[in-house]
């Protein structure tokens, strides 16, 4: 029998027509669906943000053909308006501020809880974790509505605070429909998103590390800052991303709790699309919002990679 030196066909690792078919059968359906119902709509938005509004809402065509040939009707006007009108810049900055503050408050609120759950006895951990997830199962709007009740002018909290303020001779405040209400709402709906990744990280820490640190003379406090916290940075980053991005584009929370004083960029986008009907301008607003969100995710991914390098 002669030995052929040529490379044999490889039925498993290279592409025969059957393997190619299998590959498309698997990846084709999700790819096609998401291309049509996610990618193309997003691209349309990006394109539309360079257009003019139509006469009765919608878009005027970006290009058309007539006797004189092809016409292209692109404009940078929407972006110019956003960057020159102070109103919109302030709105973006305010939304960034809300998102950052939400992330900060969630971190501070979630850390002790995650730590307690991660260090609880194994049998209790799942129960404690379940207790975090259960409120999460209630409807999103209900969780916001709860704060309408708590902060409402008739509720005990408002009346108590205003009674004290009254004694000091200060004008009564309205807790609801305020930046404060937006903050509370955002933190409330976001908190579990910080707790879960933090817990998932802290739970993996080897208790021997802490014992080693204590053994080598670290106080409980420096143990935390030199061992636990640095090791949990990937969890913090994951949680921060999960909190920051939705908070930045929040719509329902400021819409329900914010009133006119607590308005965020998401509300303006909604108005441009459903009320003002200036779609190209709304498209530009949402494209910038998306760029900010993707930028944050990118920074987080970069930081996570660095963190992994630094802490192995």
């Amino acid at each position: 029998m002669s030995i052929s030196r040529g490379a044999p066909k490889r039925p498993f690792s290279s592409m025969t027509s059957r393997a190619r078919l299998a590959r498309w059968a698997l990846s084709g359906p999700p790819l096609t669906f998401l291309a049509i119902f996610f990618l193309i709509p997003t691209l349309i938005m990006a394109l539309a943000s360079f257009g003019w509004p139509g006469r009765e809402g919608g878009f005027s065509p970006l290009w058309y053909h007539d006797a004189a040939g092809w016409h292209f009707d692109f404009t940078l006007g929407n972006y110019r308006d956003i960057f020159t009108l102070r109103l919109f810049l302030v709105l973006y900055l305010r939304s960034l501020g809300y998102a950052l503050a939400t992330t900060g408050f969630c971190l501070v609120g979630a850390y002790p809880l995650s730590l307690v759950i991660a260090r609880a006895r194994v049998g209790y951990r799942n129960l404690l974790l379940l207790l975090v997830i259960v409120p999460f199962w209630s409807n999103f709007l209900i969780r916001i509505y709860a704060w309408m009740i708590i902060l409402g002018p008739q509720a005990a909290l408002s009346r108590g605070i205003n009674a004290v303020l009254g004694l000091c001779g200060i004008r009564a405040v309205n807790l609801l429909f305020s930046p404060f209400a937006v903050m509370m709402g955002l933190v409330y709906v976001s908190l579990p998103f910080m707790i879960l990744p933090l817990y998932a990280n802290l739970e993996k820490h080897d208790p021997a590390l802490l014992e080693a640190a204590r053994d080598l003379g670290a106080s409980a406090w420096s143990c935390f800052w030199r061992v636990t916290f640095p090791l949990s940075v990937p969890g913090v980053i994951a949680g921060a991303t999960l909190v920051f991005v939705p908070a930045l584009g929040a719509f329902a929370v400021p819409d329900i709790l914010g009133g006119t004083r607590g308005i965020m960029i998401g509300n303006v986008i909604e108005m441009e699309f459903l009320q003002a009907r200036d779609w190209p301008f709304g498209a530009a607003l949402s494209i910038i919002l998306t760029i900010l969100a993707l930028g944050a995710t990118g920074i987080a991914a970069w930081a996570a990679r660095r963190g992994i390098k630094a802490y192995g």
């Binding site: 584009g249 719509f251 699309f273 919002l289």
Partner: peptide
Amino acid sequence: LVLAPLSTPDILQGVSLLVF
């Protein structure tokens, strides 16, 4: 592509699908 919807704001997905 599969994960992208998670890191784009809900509102963008909402309005872009509306427009679409």
